[in-house]
């Protein structure tokens, strides 16, 4: 098998946070040892609840943040240690689409110049000329090329996200990191943008890191999925594995919590996680999920002890993946 386009190994980002007038310091392990790969033309979905570190991961991959440790290899070349001057050419290959299209576009810049800005920054003149490139990009994302002289406020939310996508595509990148690209949009518009992203991928063969909290959207977009919790990957696998046969108690609980339009889905059998996400500044020892884990709650004492050890590496980061989550053993089948 050929080398993956993007290979992330042992990626960590620890922040030192100071709070209050007294500025007490504490270390927040926003991303704590990630390993994953991304193949050319594929999509990796990063899912998890707020505070799980998925957006920080996106910023690390863009090198908008310096990793504390670990490597990010693009085509075999480690980019985690690139110097400032080497970053320029790396940025040409990795681009980003942001959650809020309204705030990620300069309100005083026409959309044409916003889309052309990456070209100018990289001092690239496409063979067909900048204007032509902008027009074809706008056309590609479903905007009227004659609107290039308009300003962002003249467009709707969905259109602004299209502008953001066109800007990300301007440099013909290999990887586009989409950080919650549709979560600010209404359902009907969200579907338009999801379809657009898929079409572009089919056509250009680019790869996506698709960061979202909406599991259904990720299921539609991603080939592989990594489920994150407190800076760690809990479960990692193909889309069909994660959504069809989830192994990790967290994945199973997460899927179970999504309200379904299918009537009579039997809400009694649903797994309800108790409590809130622990503070990332003070995560539980060993398995970080154990304080909320429905399986842990049902385990006998001697088996619980194991959960205080480091989580095993592998596609399912769990000491007891076979443990029942509900007292009714058959419950898990309703999830599929």
């Amino acid at each position: 098998m050929s080398e993956p386009l993007l290979k992330v190994t042992g990626l960590r980002k620890h922040f030192t946070v100071r709070k209050g007038l007294a500025r007490q310091a504490s270390v927040v392990k926003a991303v704590d040892g990630l390993d994953f790969t991304l193949e050319r033309g594929k999509t990796l979905g990063l899912v998890g609840e707020s505070g799980c570190g998925k957006s920080t991961t996106g910023k690390l991959l863009m090198r908008l943040l310096e990793p504390t440790a670990g490597s990010i290899a693009l085509d075999g070349r480690d980019v985690a240690s690139l110097r400032k001057d080497e970053l320029q050419s790396f940025r040409r290959r990795v681009q980003m689409v942001f959650q809020n299209p309204a705030s990620s576009l300069n309100p005083r810049m026409t959309v044409g110049s916003a889309i052309a800005a990456p070209l100018a920054a990289q001092k690239i003149t496409p063979p067909e000329g900048v204007k032509k490139r902008v027009q074809s990009l706008m056309d590609r994302v479903g905007l009227r090329p004659e609107h290039a002289n308009r300003f962002p406020h003249e467009f709707s939310g969905g259109q602004r996200q299209r502008i953001g996508i066109a800007r990300a595509l301007a440099l013909e990148p290999d990887v586009v990191i989409c950080d919650e690209p549709v979560s600010a949009l209404d359902v009907s518009v969200q579907a338009q943008v999801v379809n657009l992203l898929k079409d572009i991928q089919d056509e250009l063969g680019i790869s996506y890191i698709f960061i979202a909290h909406d599991l259904a959207v990720v299921r539609h977009m991603a080939d592989d999925v990594a489920v994150m919790y407190l800076g760690k990957i809990m479960e990692h696998g193909s889309r069909d594995q994660i959504f069809g046969d989830p192994q990790h108690p967290y994945t199973r609980s997460l899927l179970s919590a999504v309200p379904s339009v299918e009537l009579g889905a039997g809400s009694k059998d649903r797994i309800r996680l108790q409590g809130d996400l622990p503070s990332p500044a003070n995560p539980p020892s060993g398995c970080v999920f154990r304080t909320r884990c429905p399986a842990y709650a049902l385990l006998p004492e001697e088996k619980r002890l194991l959960c205080r050890d480091e989580i095993p590496t592998g596609s399912v980061a769990c000491h007891h993946p076979d443990a029942p989550l509900l007292e009714i053993p058959a419950a898990a089948t309703t999830l599929v």
Binding site: S188, Q190, V194, D214, R219, V336
Partner: peptide, 22 residues
């Protein structure tokens, strides 16, 4: 249209059917 444009957790993962326009 709303129902058709919603991605689901269990159906086939074909193309979504958005409502055109705004």
């Amino acid at each position: 249209g709303l129902m058709a444009s919603m991605p689901a957790l269990s159906d086939e993962t074909g193309r979504l059917k958005p409502i055109p326009g705004s």
